[in-house]
């Protein structure tokens, strides 16, 4: 294991400290318990947005704290959802009197810890609602699994719900926008190489030199199937086919296409992937009107990519275009 770290136990705290130092204009950070909030939190009269989850997916979530997106991010240990305490503390810190929305990725740990935190918050008389993201089509949603996982679509939920909160929507309205994004976004990923959790010191799985893992999760959980390495175009075709048939996306749809790097993928490859994905969608009559390309929901140093497609309407498009001022996404400011 080769990493630019000191003691594995301090990885999250040191990174958060560095993040706070680099972005003091955007965020404030607390250490006991650890969470990151907007520099101007709480914003009076605005619905607060809190997300969080295991670390190792940066810039998710702290990189999305700021105007027009999240009010707070709660980083757990690497790949481990945070405990209720910091979620509770972050929720209180961003409460501007209009209630708080918890944005939760669908993993047992995240769901349970946010649930506990929400119970505690409600007991304190604060209004809180939760939405659970489950955009990963690699997992068949059924009674026989923990349900679909929340992956890169989370970024789109956070951006769009954040814009709704920023324009002054009520808690119910912001939650409804978030649910609308969740209902309309689907994702799937592939890994070329595994990642190494600092405290584990060993790769989370192994792949032969000519193997890739289709349907990888963002914690290095194995996916749908392991196949031989293929040209980028063939890989994109597989991922996109699973995504498109799911909702399904159909001719005439207007979409946002999001090519997300898993952390260790060179940008040049992300754009090769984008090119093919955009071409394939166009050939099906699905019009790509917005795009996002980059490492936004990562799995440490894993090489790979995920595709997300979000069906847009006028409202979602306008909310996507609204100003955002965070460490990792910024426009209009």
């Amino acid at each position: 294991m080769k990493k630019l770290i000191n003691d594995p136990k301090n990885v999250v705290n040191e990174a958060v400290a560095g993040f706070a130092a680099a972005h003091a204009d955007l965020v404030r950070v607390e250490f006991d318990p650890v969470f990151v909030v907007r520099a101007d939190a709480p914003v009076s009269g605005k619905v607060g947005l809190v997300s969080g989850g295991g670390s190792g997916h940066e810039p998710l979530h702290a990189g999305f704290v700021g105007l027009g997106m999240l009010d707070a991010a709660v980083p757990g240990a690497v790949f481990t959802s945070p405990t209720p305490d910091p979620i509770l503390a972050a929720t209180k810190a961003v409460d501007g009197g209009a209630g708080v929305l918890h944005i939760v990725k669908n993993y047992t740990g995240d769901v349970l810890n946010f649930e506990t935190a929400a119970d505690l918050v409600s007991a304190d008389g604060l209004e809180v609602r939760s939405v659970v993201i489950d955009d990963d089509v690699a997992v068949k949603n059924s009674l026989y699994t923990a349900g679909r996982r929340g992956v890169a679509g989370t970024v789109l939920v956070e951006k769009i719900a954040g814009a709704a909160a920023e324009r002054g929507d009520t808690l119910d309205a912001v939650a409804a926008v978030a649910e609308k994004v969740i209902a309309n976004v689907r994702s799937m990923g592939v890994a070329l190489t595994p990642c190494v959790v600092p405290h584990a010191g060993e790769p989370s799985f192994t792949l032969a030199d000519d193997e890739i893992e289709i349907g990888i999760g963002i914690h290095g959980e194995p996916g749908r199937e392991r196949i031989k390495l293929e040209p980028a175009d063939a890989i994109v075709d597989r991922l996109l086919a699973s995504i498109v048939e799911d909702i399904p996306f159909v001719a005439g749809d207007t979409v946002l296409l999001f090519v997300n790097g898993m952390g260790g993928t060179p940008q040049i490859e992300l754009y090769i992937v984008y090119r093919r994905a955009a071409e394939v969608l166009a050939a099906q009559g699905i019009e790509v009107t917005r795009s996002l390309v980059g490492n936004f929901t990562t799995s440490l140093e894993m090489q790979g990519v995920s595709l997300s497609v979000l069906k847009l309407d006028h409202e979602l498009t306008a909310l996507w275009d609204a100003p955002v001022q965070t460490a990792a996404l910024r426009w209009g400011r």
Binding site: G54, S81, P82, T83, G109, L112, N113, T116
Partner: peptide
């Protein structure tokens, strides 16, 4: 345990 373990195992 609830306030230090995290993940699925912590709440469980």
């Amino acid at each position: 345990l609830i306030s230090t373990v995290g993940g699925a195992a912590g709440p469980l």
